[in-house]
Computed example of a mutant assay.
Amino acid sequence: MFEPLFHDPSPDPTALAGWDLSVALINATVQIDQPSGEGVRTVGTGFLLDAPRTDGSPRTVLVTAGHVLDRMPASEVRIGWRVQALEGDWRFAPQPLQVRGPEDTPLWTTHPTQDIAVMEVVAPRMFARAAIPLAWLADEDTFEEARVGAGDELLSLGYPRGLSANRAGFPILRAGRIASWPLTPIAAFPTFLLDFAVFPGNSGGPVFWTPTARRAAGVDAPDHPYVAGILVQEVVVGQERLGLGVVAHAAYIREAVALLDAPPRPEP
């Protein structure tokens, strides 16, 4: 069953059901980049999850597309933290993040079948607090319960061509309609298409629904906003971009995070 999307027990969840997820996800979304040549950088998108360990201790997890990190060969990437000054202004304050260990061993964990990477990170306090709860991720039943269909609108955040919404480094918010059918069961259809223009730099961005998004006429809106998935690919045929993105269902992000708690495999 789909978990409630609000992990703070003090407010009344029913009173918060219409709250817009957009600003929360904007605050939790970051640019990931690495130099790839003279004056050129490889760019991707990531977002932060509040995903406590099995013992209940706090943990902040960076989620992105697996190929984003695969295509950044150096041991460190730059993660685009943002800092708010006392007077309310914001500035872009990126910091290095080590993603490879000795002998270039990846420090992230990848999903076994989907292009999803997760990695525990030490984030500035502001970003650790902005990380979205794991319960906000859709599970394998959410699309059925919310009666999601072809033509429904979803929102996405990212950094197309490395472009941000402003000098403070906030992500760009886009909207697109679901271009696939059927959408479930996700075991048979682990990804779906979203009709919007995708560019390098968008990969790894969250795809989500809030009450601001359009739905088919006569279909009731869900009770809660939710993260539907993660953008993992742009559809290109030959040299032609089709204006479609491939989204992996959020249930696979849940599975990837669960792998962080799995005991390490013994070496052969």
Score class of each variant (00 low, 15 high):
50 D>H: 08
79 I>Y: 03
6 F>D: 11
80 G>R: 01
256 A>T: 01
168 A>E: 10
130 A>Q: 03
213 A>I: 11
101 G>A: 05
227 V>M: 03
172 I>D: 03
217 A>Y: 05
129 R>T: 15
9 P>E: 09
122 V>L: 10
94 P>A: 07
89 D>V: 13
240 E>F: 02
266 P>K: 00
190 P>K: 04
120 E>Q: 08
196 F>Y: 15
60 T>N: 12
207 V>K: 00
170 F>Y: 08
139 D>M: 05
146 A>T: 15
222 P>L: 04
21 L>A: 15
154 L>C: 05
229 G>Y: 04
220 D>K: 15
231 L>H: 09
94 P>Y: 05
114 Q>F: 02
44 G>N: 00
130 A>C: 07
148 V>S: 12
25 L>P: 07
38 E>H: 12
246 V>I: 14
138 A>W: 07
170 F>I: 06
230 I>R: 00
59 R>L: 00
102 P>V: 10
205 G>N: 07
145 E>M: 14
172 I>V: 12
193 L>N: 07
180 S>I: 02
96 P>E: 13
163 L>N: 09
137 L>W: 01
95 Q>H: 12
46 G>T: 00
46 G>D: 07
34 Q>H: 06
231 L>P: 05
78 R>C: 07
178 I>T: 05
146 A>V: 09
105 T>R: 00
207 V>I: 12
173 L>H: 11
131 A>P: 01
198 V>E: 00
22 S>I: 03
220 D>F: 14
194 L>G: 06
48 L>T: 03
238 G>A: 07
40 V>T: 11
15 A>P: 09
140 E>A: 13
38 E>M: 13
184 T>G: 14
256 A>K: 00
102 P>M: 08
230 I>C: 09
87 E>V: 12
48 L>V: 02
114 Q>N: 04
212 T>G: 14
59 R>Y: 08
81 W>S: 04
152 D>R: 08
105 T>I: 00
164 S>A: 14
135 A>E: 15
182 P>L: 02
229 G>E: 05
245 G>L: 07
74 A>I: 09
69 L>C: 09
199 F>S: 14
164 S>L: 06
92 F>I: 01
90 W>H: 06
101 G>K: 00
11 P>T: 05
130 A>D: 12
193 L>R: 12
212 T>V: 11
25 L>V: 03
11 P>E: 08
31 Q>H: 05
45 T>H: 02
56 G>K: 08
90 W>E: 08
97 L>S: 06
157 L>S: 09
29 T>C: 08
266 P>E: 01
229 G>L: 09
229 G>I: 10
54 T>D: 12
232 V>R: 01
176 G>F: 09
135 A>S: 15
237 V>I: 14
14 T>W: 08
224 H>D: 15
82 R>W: 05
265 R>N: 06
54 T>I: 10
235 V>A: 02
5 L>F: 12
92 F>V: 05
35 P>N: 05
128 A>P: 04
12 D>A: 12
133 P>Q: 08
68 V>N: 02
213 A>E: 05
74 A>G: 13
233 Q>D: 13
231 L>T: 06
240 E>P: 02
248 A>H: 04
6 F>L: 13
77 V>Q: 02
93 A>L: 09
265 R>E: 06
208 F>P: 04
